[in-house]
Deep mutational scan, measured.
Amino acid sequence: MDVFMKGLSKAKEGVVAAAEKTKQGVAEAAGKTKEGVLYVGSKTKEGVVHGVATVAEKTKEQVTNVGGAVVTGVTAVAQKTVEGAGSIAAATGFVKKDQLGKNEEGAPQEGILEDMPVDPDNEAYEMPSEEGYQDYEPEA
């Protein structure tokens, strides 16, 4: 019985440690998101679009440190934060509304985080759909 109880105690310690790591990862992701939003706020009209992409990228980098179902929630929060940063930029006159959601080359930025393969159960990952990809044929 002692062996059984000791095993359960060790398992509990492992769960607590994993929860603490997840909590730490979420806190880091939130900190990076805040950094990115402050970065966007300090940019001029020309830099705002690039700044919004930076927020998304920093958040995406930190999301990889967070495991399990938390990833889905962090990704949703990050996307809403990026959308909010863009709205703030438009409201303050840093950028025109028609410039939001495009990178410096004018290509749409939507789907940055949505296409990231995420499995809350950590069982399997699927690649994003290939609808947006084109076949590449090298020139002879």
Rank of each mutant, 00 (worst) to 15 (best):
N122M: 04
N122A: 10
E28C: 05
A27T: 09
G84Y: 07
E83I: 07
E57W: 07
V118G: 11
E57F: 13
P108W: 05
A78G: 07
A17Y: 05
V48W: 06
M5D: 00
H50W: 14
P108S: 14
V63W: 11
E105K: 09
K34Q: 03
K23W: 13
A124Y: 10
A30K: 07
P117F: 08
G7Y: 11
V48K: 01
E110K: 02
Y133R: 07
V3Q: 05
D115H: 04
G51R: 05
D121H: 12
V66Y: 15
V77T: 06
A107H: 09
K10P: 00
K96W: 14
V16G: 06
E139K: 09
G47I: 06
N65K: 10
P138G: 12
E35R: 09
T22F: 03
E114G: 13
D2P: 01
V16A: 07
V63T: 04
P117A: 04
E123Q: 08
G41D: 00
V66K: 05
K43F: 00
K97I: 14
T59S: 07
A76C: 15
E139M: 13
H50R: 12
E126Q: 11
V15I: 12
K60R: 12
A53W: 03
V77Y: 08
Q99T: 10
V52A: 13
V66I: 15
G31Q: 05
G106H: 11
A11P: 00
T44N: 01
P108T: 08
I112C: 09
G132K: 15
V118P: 05
E126V: 03
A19S: 01
V52S: 04
K80W: 15
G25H: 15
P128L: 09
A11M: 15
Q79H: 02
A29K: 06
T64W: 11
T64K: 14
E137F: 05
K21Q: 09
Q109S: 05
A27F: 14
V48F: 08
V3M: 13
E57H: 05
T44M: 13
F94K: 00
Q79F: 06
N103D: 11
E137V: 12
E57D: 05
Q24E: 07
E137G: 10
A69S: 07
V74E: 02
A76M: 01
V82T: 04
A27I: 12
V63I: 09
A17V: 02
Q79T: 11
Q109D: 12
A140C: 12
G36H: 15
G73N: 10
G51A: 04
T92H: 03
G31C: 12
E114K: 06
E13D: 01
V118D: 12
T22M: 14
T64F: 03
P120S: 09
A78N: 03
P117M: 09
E139I: 12
K58R: 01
N122W: 02
G86T: 06
D135V: 04
V40D: 00
K96E: 11
V3I: 07
V74M: 11
D119T: 15
P120N: 05
A17C: 09
V49S: 06
P117I: 10
A85C: 05
G25V: 01
A29C: 09
Q62R: 07
K80C: 08
D135E: 11
V118S: 07
E46T: 15
T64D: 04
E104V: 04
D98W: 04
A91N: 07
V49R: 15
A69R: 13
N122C: 15
K43I: 12
Q109R: 02
V3C: 09
K23L: 07
A89T: 09
E137I: 09
V37T: 00
E130Q: 12
A27G: 06
E105H: 13
A56N: 06
